[in-house]
Design a protein around this nucleic acid. Structure first.
Lengths: 400, 400
DNA sequence: CCAGTAAGTTCAATCTCTAAACTTATTGTT
DNA sequence: AACAATAAGTTTAGAGATTGAACTTACTGG
């Protein structure tokens, strides 16, 4: 996902107006049901300004009015909500085992989703299939009346910041691919913005972006699947994803946890991935690439050998969580990826290790909550859709 | 350092004006000698707006005019510079072995600096000594005519984000200390802002903030002294320091590099600090706390035992650098702290390890530059001063 | 039924930016 | 040396966005 060119922020009256409209949209997004009066207080704008902005946002289909609030001895306020019936964002994830697409409404509600199994193939073929699926989804009866804002694509590898190139997707066999170019070629008529990002970063973004109410200051998403990736988001406005210069931020699967340990496909030894990852578990238990790892393992979970390998991987995952805690210190940790489906045999050793070893440094501190997503099928795709919305609301788009 | 309360950003005309003045100051800061015309182009403001803002910034003592630029067939522009003769920022570092203070001009130029050796003592006594030193510096003939903007203090431990509490400084023996309160009590007449932050984070901030010309997108400062800390800054406007919820971001000394390894004072085993840090080297070579580590070791560098320990520590440092590269991916790495004075015996193994193992993931990528600061005595203090300036320029201060 | 309270709207005043004309200062050409 | 061309910086009128105060709307409670 290209970072918005952050030149020196200066602006004119038009810029100020957009900024205020963004702020208002954000307030409604974060707290559905707020009134104009609430917004005026929180955004430190006058009722007049808020009223005018809201009128135009209603007219353009961004917001809708809801019920009257309970009065506390005066005219009751009118609840405001995002309008989930006018705009949508498309999100897609190209994974090692298939393609996933979703269409989301402004609030994050999934309007439609689709999953196609597919073995890794060329970028061209993948883009063609993806475009076909997206087109079909957009033309379906339910979605045809929506205005699409853009398409976000999540990919399993580091994406260069600033330009839409996926540097390396070892599990797809891709290198330096301008995937959006292929996709655009197959969807020439699509009118909206195009984004692409790493799958863990998209997932992290989505997990924080579509939340309402009290949102965490920051969140790290750890994606444990064939490989191990992560994404760290700060919950500012807009939430900011850490990318690093080469898009390598969050490649925690290749942090070294065991100097002199096993060889990793990245060329180094003792990477976290050699201890916990789909591929290392396959290697240790002799599960071939053709088999589905989960289908192969779930029936064998009571074999001592399998248990030992998974327990060891779980402990390694716990260490990794602890290292993320000490290096990034997110206020919330979210675990996703296909390996979470191994359930407590993997997760218990991980959580136990983490809980037993955290909190030695910051005395007063609350425990960092860890959330495990059992079914993370559409998490990255939905996150990519979230990135589209954020780009529209906070970017330079003239839509709002 | 309290993070600016990031409520939902909306603003009025006054806010817009301040934003534009900030942007103009930033442009001059980053590229000393720019002209009004350059600024108008880069900030996308009109010549009229820029001209008016600059007049007032000149009048208030923020900027000064310089020489005429070479003409290219028209009226030559007038170079603009930060005015280094009107405002100053104070920075201080409370370290394990002493107190360091600096006074910086707007451009980062060190106007005065001072170093007092001091063994760890109570916050009260430390604050009193620090206040005396700061007062003396401010009242010195050279600085008396300056207007101080504020004081930044750097401390060797995690600082809670949002409120000025140092959570834990194991090497000072402090815990949950509101150090600024003690300092303010000793400097009641001081008129300016008060900040405090972790020493590595301040250093990181200063290293990116006072640079001119092409600044890196991001920078990680690794502070290798008695303990190991780090700070990561993104070079946006203003540069943003990663803190984490509990201020623990960057505590890479406590990431686990050797599961089941030696015990660390944090309670865990195999932390990076057990492999590379002042205290672990002391322990391994039997250098007592009373001795100065460098004075004790520098004469013994050719002893095989000493060489082996330092070489091993260097390799661990290299692994740590690699892990920072894969977890945060800064565009530049800066190494500071007292251990850098061990010179190539420590640094060569570190750099060799890093160079031999980086760059397996992002194919095209340039090598990440690593800079070693041999004398980092005042780096953190200067960084704390930098944070004061950034707070004034980008915060809600009415000074600009 | 009416006073009290609070939400939301209207409108003149204010403030900041822009656009265009103007002044200033230098280069290059006749 | 004079004059056109070019570009920097200033001035001024005008456009656009926010504010503040007055006003309208809508509900509560006595």
């Amino acid at each position: 996902m290209p970072t918005p060119s952050s030149s020196h922020k200066a602006g004119d009256l038009h810029f100020l107006k957009r900024l205020n409209r963004s702020a208002i949209l954000e307030l409604v997004r974060r707290k559905p049901g707020v009134t104009r009066a609430d917004i005026a207080v929180k955004a430190r704008l006058t009722k007049a300004t808020v009223g005018a902005a809201i009128q135009s946002l209603l007219k353009q289909g961004w917001l809708k009015e809801g019920e009257l609030q309970k009065s506390s001895g005066g005219r009751p306020g009118r609840a405001l909500y995002l309008n989930d019936k006018h705009y949508l964002m498309l999100g897609a994830e190209v994974g090692v085992h298939g393609i996933r697409i979703v269409a989301c409404a402004l609030s994050g509600q999934v309007l439609a989703s689709h999953h196609v199994r597919l073995s890794p193939t060329t970028p061209e073929a993948t883009a063609e299939l993806l475009a076909t699926q997206l087109k079909a989804m957009l033309e379906s009866a339910k979605l045809a009346k929506y205005t699409p804002l853009g398409i976000g694509v999540a990919l399993p590898g580091p994406v260069a910041p600033g330009e839409p190139i996926i540097r390396l997707a070892p599990n797809l066999g891709w290198q330096d691919v301008r995937f959006l170019d292929f996709l655009q070629a197959n969807l020439p008529s699509f009118n909206g913005i195009w984004l692409m990002d790493n799958e863990a970063k998209s997932a992290a973004f989505g997990e924080i972006y579509f939340r309402t109410g009290k949102i965490p200051e920051s969140l790290a998403y750890i994606s444990a699947g064939t490989g191990i990736g992560s994404g760290m988001v700060e919950g500012s406005h807009p939430p900011l994803v850490r990318r690093g210069t080469q898009g390598l931020a969050g490649e925690i699967g290749h942090t070294i946890m065991q100097p002199g340990g096993l060889y990793c496909h990245c060329g180094n030894r003792g990477c976290a991935e050699t201890l916990v990852s789909g591929w290392s578990i396959r290697a240790k238990l002799g599960v071939s690439e053709e088999e589905d790892l989960l289908e192969a393992l779930l029936p064998r979970l009571n074999e001592p050998n399998v248990q030992a390998v998974i327990h060891q991987a779980g402990e390694a995952l716990g260490i990794l969580l602890l290292n993320v805690h000490h290096a990034l210190n997110p206020s919330e940790l979210v675990l996703g990826g296909s390996l979470t489906q191994l359930g407590s045999s993997l997760m218990e050793p991980a959580l136990n290790y983490f809980k037993a070893h955290q909190n030695r440094l910051a005395s007063h501190s609350h425990r960092v909550p860890i959330r495990i997503i059992e079914d993370s099928t559409f998490v990255s795709a939905r996150g990519a859709a979230a990135q589209v919305l954020a780009h529209i609301i906070h970017g330079s788009s003239e839509l709002i």
